[in-house]
C-alpha cells in the first residue's frame, strides 16, 4: 500500500469532506493522510531534518486524525501540496488591474511586464520554498502541486474586474508559470478542473462553495465565504488526483 500525504491549508477541508474520494483512494491501495496548517500558519511550516515542522503541532495533529504533529516525510511515497497558500483570484485581479494601465504600450512590453509580475508573485509564495526544500532533501519521492481553487463567483469580486478577458489571460499565465516551475523540478501539476468553473472561467461555480466546512473543527464556513469549497468540489478533485497519482509517470500537464 502506498502512503500519500495531502498537505496544505484550510482548503483541505473540501477534500476531507469527500467520502467518495476517500473510498476511491483506499480501494486503489493508497493510505491517505491529511496534514497542514490553516490560514497564516501555513507559511510558517518549515523543513528540517526530514520533517515538516508545524507552527501549531497540536492543530496539525487534529488535521491528520491524530497521527502527525510534525510530518515525517520518510513515512510517505507521495507528497501532494494542495493549495499551499497560493491563492490565484485576488493576485490575478491585482495584476490585471495593473496591466490595464499598460494598454497603450507594446505587446512585447506588456507580456514581459506580466511575466515579471507573476514571477514576483510566485517568489513570495511559501509553497514554492517548501516544495523546493522537500525535493532537495528527498528527490526520490513523488510530488504533486495544485494552487488554491479560484474564488467562487460573487458580486464583490466581479465588481473589481474591469476586463474579464485580461483577467483570464492573467490567470492562464499564472497557471502556466506554476506548471513550468513544477515541470522543471519533476513535480506533477494539477490545474483546477474546468468543469468546476463558472461561466467566463474566472471563478469557481458557486455550487461548489455552499456549505463548505472548516478543516479542523468541521464547522460550516459563513455564507459569505467564497474562498473555501465543499465536498462536491472535493469529489471532483479527489477523482482527478487519484488519476494523477495512478499515472505511471509524473503528469506533465494538468489533469483538470
Amino acid at each position: 500500500m502506498s502512503k500519500i500525504c495531502i498537505l496544505g491549508n484550510s482548503h483541505l477541508g473540501a477534500l476531507a469532506q469527500s467520502e467518495a474520494g476517500a473510498k476511491a483512494f483506499e480501494a486503489a491501495g493508497h493510505d491517505v493522510v491529511y496534514w497542514g496548517a490553516a490560514g497564516t500558519l501555513f507559511p510558517k511550516i518549515t523543513y528540517k531534518d526530514g520533517r515538516l515542522i508545524s507552527p501549531a503541532p497540536s492543530r496539525s495533529r487534529i488535521i491528520s486524525g491524530g497521527r502527525y504533529g510534525h510530518l515525517d516525510l520518510d513515512d510517505f511515497d507521495t507528497l501532494l501540496v494542495y493549495g499551499g497558500s497560493v491563492p490565484l483570484s485576488n493576485a490575478a485581479a491585482r495584476i490585471a488591474a495593473r496591466m490595464t494601465t499598460l494598454a497603450p504600450l507594446s505587446g512585447a512590453f506588456r507580456t514581459a511586464a506580466l511575466n515579471e509580475q507573476i514571477a514576483l508573485w510566485w517568489q513570495d509564495r511559501p509553497a514554492g520554498a517548501l516544495m523546493q526544500a522537500m525535493i532537495d532533501a528527498h528527490p526520490e519521492k513523488r510530488y504533486i502541486f495544485t494552487p488554491d481553487p479560484l474564488m467562487a463567483r460573487n458580486d464583490a469580486y466581479l465588481a473589481r474586474i474591469s476586463d474579464p478577458v485580461l483577467l483570464r489571460q492573467v490567470l492562464d499565465a499564472m497557471y502556466m508559470h506554476c506548471q513550468t516551475w513544477c515541470d522543471t523540478r519533476g513535480i506533477g501539476f494539477y490545474r483546477q478542473n474546468e468543469h468546476t468553473l463558472a461561466e467566463g472561467r474566472l471563478t469557481t461555480h458557486p455550487s461548489f462553495s455552499t456549505n463548505s466546512v472548516k478543516m479542523e473543527k468541521g464547522e460550516a464556513h459563513p455564507d459569505e465565504d467564497f474562498v473555501h469549497m465543499n465536498g462536491s468540489y472535493g469529489d471532483v478533485v479527489m477523482a482527478d488526483l487519484l488519476t494523477l497519482v495512478q499515472s505511471p509517470e509524473q503528469a506533465v500537464r494538468a489533469a483538470g
Binding site: 495593473r98 512590453f109 514581459a112 509580475q117
Partner: peptide, 14 residues
C-alpha cells in the same frame, strides 16, 4: 516612464 511597477531591469531592456 512606461510603467511604475515593473523592475528597473525590465524598463531598461525596453
Amino acid at each position: 516612464p512606461g510603467a511604475d511597477f515593473v523592475s528597473e531591469a525590465l524598463r531598461s531592456r525596453f
